Amino acid sequence: MAPAPPLPGAVVAPPLLRLEGVHTHIGAYHILHGVDLAVPEGEVTMLLGRNGAGKTTTLRTVMGLWRASAGRVLLAERPIQALPTPEIAQADIAYVPENMGIFGDLTVRENLLLAARRARSLDDLDTGRLDWLLGLFPALRKFWLHPAGKLSGGQKQMLAIARAMVEPRRLLLIDEPTKGLAPAMIRNLIEALREVRRGGAREEQPTTVLLVEQNFMVARALGDSVAVMDDGRVVHAGRMTDLAEDEALQHRLLGLSLAAHQ
């Protein structure tokens, strides 16, 4: 998989999301130990690291599902770490958890409508945006009236991402979207996420993405920026291309090389 092409005239953007010295406790367990993280606006930032490094906890802390016990989470310089999760979501942040979070007994159509905060019926949805989403994920159009629980794993993942994008979002948090998917489905998902990053076919504002991923070739294909976590801290941050070209750094941070996965 080739690295994602840079956007025309792209420069490193100022951060849309910043974490400053964030600590998170879950019960008696101290999971995040002072996380510092900057997510540039309009880019895809990959959050990498070994299992148990704190990646999922970081996403859940941003969404307020687990509370930061210290430090600040800032969205466009506005502190959000003390806000309730529904209010954080109202700030145009969407979260796709590792378990996808779809409603298996509801149809594809009903899942998408339920995720649209401003729509009470299908007629209230932006038809142009809906057509764009169904173009990215054709299986969703095919199974429009089927129960979501009967979709394949890859189709469920695409529905989860489509739910998060059924309305324009400023920030999209995605946890391991390619886990367990077949290579052909991974390629389709990569192309869809590239289109999301560009803002779609209607010249909308590009969506900023923070993406947790264990497939390092996917990280290389999609990432503009990268942060690597270990033991509840960010131990490396920079451009994805720089990490992709430095095998020694890959071994030191991740215990393997991207070249071995080509």
Score class of each variant (00 low, 15 high):
residue 98 E to S: 10
residue 102 I to N: 11
residue 151 L to R: 05
residue 238 G to K: 10
residue 73 V to W: 01
residue 84 P to S: 09
residue 257 S to G: 10
residue 118 R to N: 14
residue 1 M to C: 13
residue 144 W to Q: 03
residue 159 L to S: 07
residue 260 A to D: 13
residue 44 V to I: 13
residue 11 V to R: 13
residue 51 N to Q: 04
residue 184 A to Q: 09
residue 129 R to E: 09
residue 80 I to H: 04
residue 137 F to M: 08
residue 80 I to G: 09
residue 27 G to T: 04
residue 97 P to K: 10
residue 230 D to R: 15
residue 112 L to A: 00
residue 8 P to Y: 15
residue 181 L to D: 05
residue 71 G to W: 12
residue 30 H to Y: 12
residue 215 N to R: 11
residue 71 G to Y: 13
residue 106 L to K: 11
residue 226 V to G: 04
residue 36 D to W: 12
residue 166 V to W: 01
residue 69 S to F: 02
residue 215 N to Q: 10
residue 223 G to Y: 03
residue 33 H to A: 15
residue 52 G to S: 07
residue 11 V to I: 08
residue 233 R to A: 10
residue 138 P to N: 09
residue 220 R to Q: 11
residue 257 S to C: 04
residue 232 G to H: 01
residue 83 L to R: 12
residue 206 P to L: 04
residue 72 R to C: 13
residue 248 A to H: 11
residue 27 G to I: 07
residue 198 R to G: 04
residue 215 N to C: 07
residue 134 L to V: 04
residue 15 P to C: 02
residue 91 A to N: 13
residue 257 S to F: 00
residue 7 L to F: 09
residue 150 K to M: 09
residue 119 A to Y: 07
residue 10 A to Y: 07
residue 35 V to L: 05
residue 104 G to Y: 08
residue 177 P to S: 08
residue 252 R to V: 14
residue 258 L to Y: 10
residue 24 T to A: 13
residue 28 A to D: 15
residue 236 H to Y: 14
residue 148 A to T: 11
residue 18 R to K: 12
residue 210 L to C: 01
residue 105 D to F: 10
residue 83 L to C: 09
residue 203 E to Q: 14
residue 154 G to L: 08
residue 60 R to W: 08
residue 40 P to R: 03
residue 89 A to D: 06
residue 211 L to A: 03
residue 107 T to W: 02
residue 27 G to V: 05
residue 222 L to H: 03
residue 205 Q to M: 09
residue 65 L to A: 03
residue 127 T to F: 11
residue 244 A to G: 07
residue 190 I to M: 15
residue 148 A to W: 07
residue 223 G to A: 15
residue 219 A to Q: 04
residue 93 I to K: 07
residue 26 I to N: 08
residue 234 V to D: 03
residue 253 L to N: 05
residue 221 A to S: 15
residue 5 P to K: 04
residue 154 G to T: 06
residue 89 A to S: 13
residue 10 A to T: 02
residue 205 Q to V: 12
residue 32 L to G: 05
residue 115 A to H: 00
residue 115 A to T: 02
residue 78 R to F: 07
residue 123 D to Q: 15
residue 77 E to P: 08
residue 49 G to K: 00
residue 182 A to Q: 07
residue 156 K to H: 13
residue 204 E to Y: 01
residue 246 D to K: 01
residue 198 R to T: 08
residue 7 L to W: 07
residue 260 A to Y: 06
residue 173 L to P: 01
residue 9 G to C: 11
residue 256 L to K: 09
residue 111 N to G: 05
residue 165 M to C: 14
residue 125 L to F: 02
residue 141 R to C: 02
residue 29 Y to T: 12
residue 148 A to L: 10
residue 260 A to L: 09
residue 254 L to P: 06
residue 217 M to Q: 12
residue 17 L to W: 00
residue 143 F to D: 05
residue 98 E to M: 07
residue 104 G to D: 12
residue 256 L to F: 05
residue 232 G to E: 01
residue 78 R to V: 15
residue 71 G to A: 14
residue 11 V to L: 09
residue 38 A to F: 00
residue 82 A to G: 13
residue 123 D to S: 15
residue 203 E to Y: 08
residue 258 L to M: 14
